[in-house]
Amino acid sequence: MTSSIDTPLGLGDEARQLSLLIQSVTDYAIYMLDAEGHVRSWNSGGERIKGYSPQEVIGLHFSRFYLPEDVEAGLPAKGLAAARQHGKYEAEGWRLRKDGRRFRASIVIDPIWQGDELIGFAKITRDITQSYEAGLRLQEAQHALVQSQKIEAVGKLTFGLAHDFNNLLTVIINSLELLARRSGGDARITQLVDTAMQAADHGALLTRQLLSFARGQRLIADRNNVNDLLMRSMELYRRTCGPNVTFKTQLQPDLPLVEVDAAQFEACLMNLVANSRDAMPCGGQVTIATRLIQRARPDVADATLQPFVCVEVADNGSGIAPELVERVMEPFFTTKEVGKGSGLGLSQVFGFAAQSGGFATIGSVVGQGTVVRICLSPVGG
Rank of each mutant, 00 (worst) to 15 (best):
D194H: 08
A289R: 12
S364P: 03
G100I: 02
Q294K: 11
L145S: 10
N174D: 15
W113P: 01
A262G: 02
A73E: 11
G283W: 02
A354M: 06
G203N: 06
D315V: 14
E14T: 00
V286K: 00
L292R: 12
L255E: 03
S377A: 11
I49S: 01
R277F: 08
I128Y: 06
Q294H: 11
R126P: 00
V108K: 00
A162V: 01
G283R: 03
A196Q: 11
S364W: 07
D222F: 01
D13Q: 14
F103P: 09
G115M: 04
V379Y: 11
I189A: 15
T125Y: 05
S318R: 14
D254I: 05
P322H: 04
L236Y: 13
I22G: 07
T335M: 09
K248F: 07
F247I: 10
V171M: 02
G87H: 13
F333M: 12
G283F: 03
R291V: 04
S233E: 15
S377Y: 05
P253N: 09
V313N: 02
E259Y: 04
V71R: 15
A180L: 12
K340L: 08
L292V: 01
F359M: 01
Q217R: 14
I288T: 02
N224K: 15
H86P: 00
Q114A: 06
G339E: 10
R16F: 08
P54H: 13
P76H: 08
P322M: 03
D299Q: 04
P331W: 07
R126Q: 12
R215I: 00
D254T: 12
I320Q: 03
S41V: 02
A91P: 00
G59H: 02
M234D: 09
H86E: 07
Y237R: 10
L272D: 00
E117C: 09
D299N: 10
V286G: 04
A105G: 00
K156C: 14
Y52F: 13
G369R: 12
A200D: 13
L292E: 09
L118N: 04
A83K: 06
Q191P: 00
K156L: 15
S53I: 03
R137L: 08
L344V: 03
A144K: 01
D27L: 04
D254E: 13
I220Y: 05
T26I: 09
G120E: 08
Q130I: 13
L211E: 14
Q149T: 11
A134D: 13
L20S: 15
S377C: 09
